[in-house]
Design a protein around this nucleic acid. Structure first.
Length: 466
RNA sequence: GGUCCCAUCGUCUAGUGGCCUAGGACACCGGCCUCUCACGCCGGGAACACGGGUUCGAGUCCCGUUGGGAUCACCA
C-alpha cells in the first residue's frame, strides 16, 4: 500500500494542504504502508525552493513525515518525455499547432454560444507539420463511451467521454504538464491510492484514460471534500489559508491542529479529542463525509486549550521558552530553572488557550518589574487595603517555610481579624503581585513566586499607596 | 453556460428504514463551584432545504426543484 502527498511549491503549506497530507499519512500508517512526498514543480515560473522548504517544515512540525522523497518532477523530465514519445508513436497523442490566441478565441466563442469549452480538434488528423511553429502535444482522448471513477469516498462517478478534451500533455517548450506527470509518477512510484482534494475529481477521468492508453493498472482514488471559509468561499488568507507555520507563531500545538483538521470531514462516533495512535487506529474512508466543511477558528482554539491543559508542565515549559524570548521576558542566553518554570506553567495551564497567552501570563512570575493595570490599581491599591497589605507582608516575611497551606492560613487569619471576606484581601495582593485582577489562585501564585519577590512587590504596592 | 459533486442545529458532526420526542462537540445564554480569572459540573435555546414518490413505517431509499461548491489554461 503506497500513497503520496504531491504539493505544488507555489505557496506555503496551508490548512487545506495540511489536511490532504494528514489523510494520506493516516491512511498509510493505518495500513502499514508508505507515504511518498512528491513536489510538483513543473510550472517553473511559479515554483520556488523556498516554498519547498516551507512545505517540508510545515509537515515536520505537524509530525507528518513521509517515508520517501521528496522527489521533484523537474528532475524527471526525461522520463516524461519518453512517455510522451510512446504515446506519439502509438498514435495516442498528436502534435497541435494552434496558437494560444486562437485557442482563446475558440473558448470565448464556445462560452458565448453556451457550448462546452472544448478543443475543436483542428490538428487531430493533421498529416504534415506546420513549419515555423513549435507544437504542443495533445492526448487523443477517446470520444465514445464513458469513464467510470470508482472513488473510496464518493462512490461511482460516471463521465461521458465526449465531454473530455484532448488535453495538452507537453507544452511547446517541451515541458510536460500536470495530467501527464501525475499519471507517470503515480505509475513509476507504484502508488496504490491517490488521496487528494475534491477539486481533482474532474481531472480523474482524463487521468484514467491516460492510464489505459499506457496500459497500466488504475490506482484507487479518494477525493476529500474541500475546506471552506466562513463565507462558504474557498479558504483564503483571510480565513486561514495562511501557512500552517503561522499557527506555530500564534501559539498552537501541532497535535491540536491535526486533531482539528481530522475532524473536518471525518468522525468517530461522538469522540472529539484523539491521540495520534487512536487516529491511526480508527482512521477509515468509510467515515469520511462527502460535503465540504467550513473552517471554524473557535473550535480550533478550544482544542488547543484542551491540548495545553492535558500536556505535561515540563513539555509546555520547553515549548513556551521561544515565546518568552520573543516577548523579551527572558533573553536568549538566560538560563531558566526548568523545574521552577514547570511549576509556574502548571498554575496557568487551564487558563491559557495558546502558548502566546501562556507566555504573556508567565511574565509576572519571571520579570523583575510589573506594571499595574490602571483600573485595577485604583480599585484595589488604596488606603482601604493598605493596612491589610502591610500585615500580609509582615506575616509572609516572618514565615520560615513557604507552603500553600501556611499562606492560606495567614490570609484567613488576617481576613478574620479585620472581619472582611477573603476576596477583600486576595484582590489587592493579586494586583500587587501580577499587576492585574486575574490570575491563578493567589496562594499558589505566592508559593511559586517565592518569598523574596512576593515581599518586594508587596512593599512596592504599599509605597505606591502613600 | 457545459460537466461533475454536495445538502442534519450558526459551525463540526452522530445517524447505514423502526432504537429519533433527532444525539455529541464548538460558540452563545442561564446557574453551581469560588480569593479573581479560568477549569469543571448542571441546565437552556438551536437542525433533518423544499416537493413528490417507494414502504406498514423515511433524516435514512428513488425522482424532481432549489441552493451551494468544484472544474472547463501551453496552472497544478
Amino acid at each position: 500500500m503506497r500513497v503520496r502527498f504531491a504539493p505544488s511549491p507555489t505557496g506555503y503549506l496551508h490548512l487545506g494542504g495540511a489536511r490532504t497530507a494528514l489523510f494520506n499519512w493516516l491512511y498509510a500508517k493505518h495500513n502499514n504502508g508508505a507515504c511518498i512526498l512528491r513536489i510538483e514543480d513543473t510550472d517553473r515560473t511559479r515554483s520556488t525552493d523556498e516554498y519547498i522548504d516551507e512545505i517540508i517544515k510545515g509537515m515536520n512540525w505537524l509530525g507528518l513525515e513521509c517515508d520517501e522523497g521528496p522527489f521533484r518532477q523537474t528532475d524527471r523530465f526525461d522520463t516524461y518525455k519518453s512517455y510522451v514519445e510512446r504515446l506519439l508513436n502509438d498514435g495516442k497523442a498528436y502534435h497541435c499547432y494552434c496558437s494560444p490566441e486562437e485557442l482563446d478565441k475558440n473558448r470565448k466563442e464556445a462560452m458565448k454560444e453556451g457550448r462546452a469549452l472544448k478543443y475543436n480538434g483542428r490538428c487531430r488528423d493533421l498529416k504534415e507539420p506546420v513549419p515555423g511553429v513549435d507544437p504542443v502535444v495533445r492526448f487523443r482522448m477517446p470520444q465514445e463511451g464513458s469513464t467510470v471513477v470508482d472513488d473510496l469516498i464518493r462512490g461511482t462517478v460516471t463521465f461521458e467521454n465526449e465531454q473530455l478534451d484532448d488535453l495538452i500533455i507537453q507544452r511547446s517548450d517541451g515541458t510536460p504538464t500536470y495530467n501527464l506527470t501525475v499519471v507517470v509518477d503515480d505509475v513509476d512510484m507504484e502508488i496504490t491510492h491517490v488521496i487528494r482534494g475534491d477539486d481533482h475529481l474532474n481531472n480523474t477521468p482524463r487521468q484514467i484514460q491516460l492510464y489505459q492508453a499506457l496500459e497500466y493498472e488504475i490506482p484507487r482514488f479518494a477525493h476529500l471534500p474541500m475546506i471552506l471559509g466562513s463565507d462558504k468561499a474557498r479558504l483564503s488568507k483571510r480565513h486561514g489559508a495562511t501557512s500552517v507555520m503561522a499557527y506555530y507563531d500564534m501559539g498552537y500545538l501541532p497535535d491540536a491542529i491535526v486533531n482539528y483538521l481530522v475532524r473536518l470531514g471525518w468522525s468517530y462516533g461522538d469522540q472529539e479529542v484523539f491521540t495520534r495512535d487512536e487516529l491511526i487506529k480508527y482512521f477509515s474512508f468509510e467515515s469520511v463525509g462527502k460535503a465540504a466543511s467550513i473552517f471554524n477558528p473557535e473550535k480550533l482554539l478550544w482544542l488547543n486549550s484542551q491540548y495545553i491543559m492535558n500536556s505535561s508542565p515540563e513539555e509546555l515549559a520547553d515549548l513556551v521558552i521561544p515565546f518568552l524570548v520573543k516577548d523579551g521576558t527572558v533573553s536568549e542566553e538566560q538560563e531558566l530553572d526548568r523545574q521552577w518554570l514547570s511549576r509556574a506553567v502548571h498554575t496557568l495551564q487551564e487558563r491559557a488557550k495558546t502558548l502566546v497567552e501562556l507566555a504573556a501570563s508567565l511574565r509576572y512570575y519571571i520579570a523583575e518589574e510589573i506594571e499595574y493595570d490602571e483600573k485595577a490599581r485604583k480599585k484595589f491599591l488604596n488606603t482601604e487595603s493598605r493596612e491589610l497589605l502591610v500585615e500580609l507582608k509582615e506575616g509572609l516575611d516572618a514565615m520560615t517555610e513557604f507552603s500553600e497551606e501556611g499562606i492560606e492560613k495567614l490570609f484567613k487569619d488576617v481576613a478574620e481579624q479585620h472581619e472582611v471576606k477573603l476576596g477583600k484581601v486576595a484582590q489587592p495582593v493579586r494586583v500587587s503581585l501580577t499587576g492585574g485582577t486575574q490570575s491563578p489562585g493567589i496562594f499558589e501564585v505566592i508559593d511559586v513566586m517565592g518569598k523574596e519577590k512576593t515581599v518586594q512587590r508587596l512593599e512596592r504596592a504599599i509605597q505606591s499607596i502613600s
